[in-house]
Amino acid sequence: MGASLMARNIFNQPPKDEKESAAPSPAPVKSSKLPGSVGGLRDSLREITANSIRDIEPERIDMDGLRDRLILEDSSIEDLAESIRKHGQQVPIMVRPSDQPDRYRIIYGRRRLAAIRRVGGTVKAIVRTLDDDASLIAQGQENNLRLDPSFIEKSLFIKEMQEAGYKPGVIQDALGLTRQGVSNHRVVIEQLPDELVRLIGPAHGVGRRQWGDLAALSEKVPLVDIARETLASLPDTTPSSDKFQAVYVACSSKARGAANQSARGKTTVVKDNSGSPVGTLSVDGKSIAIKITRKDNPEFGQWLEERAETTLRQLFEQWQNERGSGS
């Protein structure tokens, strides 16, 4: 898949519990029955992990393909590098041969590769000759087995895969989702600005309903502006899920304030050229009202009453004519 199909670098902040030292050494695992290509792929991954690991120079591996997490380079890469310095690389990455001689393309293990480039030395890698579809499925399944991506990370990955032209069946296999499950993720991500998601991060533990509720507020308040203002007051170490809650509370509060302001409406005193009050114009979310106080302008009030219906119809017809001429 060419460079034109490469995803934007919008994935970062992986789950806290991903530590190289905590990952188990490759070992045979009891097979579980899974349908179709997903089950076969998982069994295949286990077999090749146990038997086909090679040492490759990191500079011979190209970082391409779709990203499956929010911003790859973050402070946790240094923690992972330190763990590899102490304990070695416990889990191999997977690569496939490149079109260029003696080079490879990453399938999964981008954070491990970035950490080893800091540490130095070779990287343990499984080399497989896979096409684009099989590579994507391997990438998605490995992440699901080891990392449990958050709802919004899966949603972004789905969006990237669809925009890159992958078929629905491949996308479903890559994440182990049904057709409806893919649709549920896509409906939410389509309503959210990309910048908002980058500001909040993966937000592990925040599900479809909560992200959907935040997305629904986009029609009422400027989500990105509120998020920037809210997050600027939080410490840099604030967990992503807490960032989500802070942004959601701030956006909900703004939306309620806007709704209350609209419900209260606005009343304007209309005056003549000398500054004397003629009447009042009241506008709220439900109606527009013109009020003439008979005590202040009894003669004008009588005159308007006699002509109100005719005048209102004339104004309505004028509006229709202007609307028609502008269409």
Rank of each mutant, 00 (worst) to 15 (best):
I116D: 01
S4W: 13
P149Q: 04
M1K: 07
S31A: 11
R8F: 05
S327P: 08
L113P: 03
P235H: 11
R294P: 01
L223V: 15
T178C: 05
K271A: 07
L231Y: 11
Y108A: 12
E78G: 12
A174C: 00
S98D: 01
P92M: 07
Q100F: 06
I292Y: 04
I84W: 14
V270N: 05
Y248Q: 04
D173R: 06
V206H: 02
S274A: 11
G285M: 01
N144L: 11
V224F: 05
R313E: 15
K86V: 08
A114K: 11
E299M: 08
A289Y: 07
T311K: 13
D43T: 14
N321E: 15
R110N: 09
K295T: 09
V269Q: 01
E305W: 03
A50C: 09
T122R: 14
D68M: 14
G140H: 07
T237S: 13
V283G: 06
P35I: 06
R294W: 14
I116R: 02
R60S: 13
V95N: 03
R208I: 13
V221T: 00
V95S: 03
Y108P: 04
A164T: 15
L45C: 02
E190M: 09
D74L: 02
D74M: 02
P235Q: 11
V247S: 05
L5T: 15
G279A: 00
K124Y: 03
E190F: 08
V119F: 01
L312V: 05
G279E: 00
S327E: 14
I158R: 07
G40Y: 06
Q210A: 14
L312S: 07
E317A: 13
A164Y: 13
F300A: 08
A23Q: 09
R112Q: 02
I290H: 11
I200G: 10
D131S: 09
L66W: 01
G326I: 13
D213F: 02
V224H: 09
